[in-house]
Design a protein around this nucleic acid. Structure first.
Length: 751
DNA sequence: TACGCATGGCTTTTT
DNA sequence: GCCATGCGTA
């Protein structure tokens, strides 16, 4: 009766799906059918073991993944209703439970969830209260530190400072937390922390949920943080029917607290855990798997997996060295055209993956120029747009009139003549009188005159009256009507039109407001309360993101965004020191290993063809700089790199580049290095540096003046014996780009 | 209070 | 090279 669930599985997959109770750890390599195993396991529990859907808790890392998984499970259980089946992110699962069990927390059940922007403004206020200068200590860094502490379940009073910076954090953290509580708001991390604290503090509560959730399944286990790991253990106990699926090699979220060592911890905490390795890959050619493995095998502290495929076809991968990021983009475009023509690939078969968002620019410019259709995957979230945040803040203020962050956001949008000064005075008055924001506003409408500038009182009282009206309208439960009333009364649409620079911008922003309006319509249909809606809106930051992913387009994205996806042809661009690995990662402990995993994730997205590119020079932050190819390239065995003549490799470029500079490397060089064995000994042949002999007087990016040619910008400067050769692009098009010898030319630097 | 220009500083990103 | 923030001025 469960044949349909099991018939297409290999032995290891079947073992995972049908394993009995107790802790189970599935280490699933990329492309090994992990999601299929997870969904089938859930369906199997329901259909073959007789577990009721409401006894199952499944956790994913994104809302999108949760929605997809729910759908797949539904398809697998056919007509069975998934009544009470809990699937969601850790955060949404906790939010849901905490709403019901708010009595076990310092909050009331209509609590709010603050997103990162809200958090930053609270940090700002906390720092202001403590007389700390946000220029000396970045609020973002402090927020990160607090967030890390929370992920480690370190409470404000437990936070230990070890240096000056952490001393600042130690002061801000308690103040920040108190402000959150004052606004009845939790940040994302609090959802986890408060859940852990509640479960730990009350036997009754703990037993209630431990009994309810008999089976706990966790996806992307390598990306759990400490708090999440504790939650897994708390919900899983005492039966410990915990099914954890993950891959240490794909842990790429350390910067937000993910700790792949939780995999090892799980093995230690549950010594009787069954460990199942999924090593058969259903995605890539053997060469691609070998390349991936060569890269990742340099990492330590991992469970070694041996990925294999039964695919017989394979091609070597291609490594291409471009002159600069522009040429790199052109090469990518050329390859796409070539592969489409020669091998019948479609635009949608291609992905271009890079380390940093900024790298998309050169690619986009080239693609636009050549009319090559593309789409950027994972663009700025809908919910991050200003107009969306504004309107949500209005709703949130209605939902919780003590929410100071939302109040501050909307009080002067549109402009009401209420600036920073008035707000600070108002808050000071509230704190002095020890009354809530709502109370204060009410007193204003009754004619109470707090110590504020006289001209601020009227608009403030007007605002208070509007808010009162909205609050009573909210009682009717018609969210859409409330939304329309608010927009009309504050004149928000008019404001959008007036504050936009172009009619197009106004249109886009209004469209966004209408898209948000549609979500309220849905909420009404589902009879959601305003409070429920607010929680959903904060947690589901991707839900309303109606990106048109239709059509034949190549996909551009960061490596992080690429996780979980696959494409027939994958380009990884900018495989250079400083980019991959990223220079910022060098400061992090084990940063290099994380970068290596990132590269690994990128490589394993490819099904048939993998093309790695790097550039000799790259425009970073305006000025162009000389790049060195990534050391990761030297980990790839040379025999996997070549390409048969006439398939992919184009050699014309190299000659062209060498004539443009003294730099005489070429495309074959990497392979030559590797063949010579210099790679294994770790020797890297450095590019000639421009400043090798002595420093140049001029540097790229400098603005200069020449008596005959006028003003210009330095593109490049290099030492030539005793002389210095400066390449300058002159503002006057007549002169264009010129190479000047300092021995003759008079060139002065302009400030 | 609001707008305009200058300065600085810069990953990755989901909840 | 761009964007966000901050300060100075109307």
């Amino acid at each position: 009766m469960t044949d349909d669930l099991l018939h297409s599985l290999n032995d290891q997959q079947r073992q995972a799906v049908t394993a009995g109770g107790g802790p189970i750890l599935v280490l699933a390599g990329p492309g090994s059918g992990k999601t299929g195993v997870l969904t089938r396991r859930i369906a199997y529990l329901i259909r073959a073991v007789g577990v009721r859907p409401w006894q199952i808790m499944a956790v994913t890392f994104t809302n999108k993944a949760a929605a997809e998984m729910r759908q797949r499970v539904q398809a697998l259980v056919q007509d069975e209703r998934l009544y009470g089946f809990q699937i969601g992110t850790f955060h949404s699962t906790c939010a849901r439970i905490l709403r019901v069990e708010a009595d076990y927390t310092p909050y009331t059940k209509d609590f709010l969830i603050y997103d990162t922007d809200d958090q930053l403004s609270v940090i700002g206020r906390a720092m202001d209260d403590l007389d700390l200068d946000p220029k000396r200590n970045s609020p973002r860094a402090i927020l990160n530190a607090i967030s890390s502490a929370k992920n480690e379940l370190i409470l404000p009073h437990q936070y230990q400072s070890v240096d000056l910076f952490t001393e600042i954090v130690a002061r801000v953290y308690p103040r920040y937390q108190r402000l959150l509580e004052q606004s009845n708001a939790l940040d994302f991390d609090d959802l986890l922390v408060q859940m852990v604290l509640a479960l730990r503090s009350s036997d009754m509560l703990r037993e209630k949920y431990q009994q309810r959730f008999e089976y706990v399944l966790v996806d992307e286990f390598q990306d759990t943080n400490s708090a999440q790991y504790q939650l897994v253990k708390l919900f899983g106990a005492p039966q410990n029917n915990v099914f954890a699926v993950g891959d240490e090699d794909q842990s790429i979220y350390a910067f937000r607290g993910a700790d792949y060592r939780n995999v090892a911890r799980f093995r230690k905490d549950f010594p009787d855990a069954q460990v199942i390795l999924l090593e058969q890959n259903y995605r890539s050619t053997q060469t691609i798997l070998d390349v991936a493995r060569a890269v990742i095998d340099k990492n330590t502290n991992r469970t070694v997996k041996k990925l294999f495929t039964t695919r017989k076809d394979t091609l070597p991968i291609l490594v291409h060295e471009a002159w600069d990021d522009e040429q790199e983009a052109r090469f990518v475009a050329d390859q796409i055209d070539l592969l489409r023509l020669k091998h019948g690939y479609r635009y949608s078969d291609f992905a271009i993956i890079y380390r940093t968002n900024g790298q998309s620019r050169a690619l986009e410019a080239t693609f636009v120029h050549r009319a090559l259709p593309y789409t950027i995957y994972g663009d700025v979230s809908f919910y991050k747009r200003r107009e969306v945040k504004d309107v949500l803040a209005y709703l949130r203020l209605v939902s919780n009139p003590n929410d100071r962050v939302s109040f501050e956001r909307v009080i002067n949008v549109p402009k009401r003549g209420l600036g920073e000064k008035s707000i600070r005075d108002l808050f000071r008055w509230l704190d002095q009188e020890q009354i809530s924001l709502l109370n204060g506003l009410e007193r204003l409408t009754e004619g109470d005159a707090p110590p504020l500038a006289a001209r601020a009182l009227k608009p403030l009282a007007e605002f208070a009256l509007m808010l009162r009206g909205w609050r009573s309208q909210a009682q009717t439960g018609q969210l859409l009507a409330l939304f329309d009333t608010i927009l009309a009364e504050v004149g928000y649409r008019l404001y959008l039109r007036e504050s936009s620079d172009t009619p197009q911008e106004a249109q886009t922003r209004e469209d966004n407001v209408d898209a948000l309006r549609a979500t309220l319509q849905t909420a009404d249909e589902r009879q959601m309360s305003l409070q429920d809606y607010m929680i959903e809106a904060t947690l589901m930051q991707d839900a309303a993101d109606t990106r048109t992913n239709e059509g034949e387009r190549v996909t551009l994205m960061t490596m992080h965004a690429a996780k979980g996806l696959e494409f027939p042809v994958v380009f990884i661009t900018g495989v250079e020191e400083g980019i991959l690995p990223h220079f910022r990662s060098l400061e992090e402990p084990n940063g290099i290993e994380e970068e290596r995993r990132l590269f690994y994730v990128g490589i394993t997205r490819a099904k048939d063809r993998l093309i790695l590119t790097y550039a000799f020079r790259r425009g970073l932050y305006g000025s162009s700089s000389v790049q060195e190819r990534s050391k990761f390239l030297l980990d790839i065995p040379p025999q996997l790199i070549d390409a048969p003549p006439g398939t992919l490799r184009t050699d014309q470029g190299a000659a062209q580049f060498s004539s443009m500079t003294r730099w005489d490397g070429g495309m074959g060089r990497l392979k030559d290095d590797l063949a010579r064995g210099s790679a294994s000994s770790g020797r890297v042949i450095p590019f000639p540096r421009q400043d090798a002999a002595r420093a140049t007087q001029f540097r790229a990016g400098m603005n200069v003046f020449h008596e005959a040619f006028g003003q210009g910008k330095v593109i490049e400067s290099r030492i030539d014996g005793e002389d210095e050769i400066v390449t300058v692009a002159f503002v006057d098009r007549k002169f264009g780009i010129k190479k000047l010898s300092l021995a003759y030319a008079k060139l002065t630097v302009l400030q």
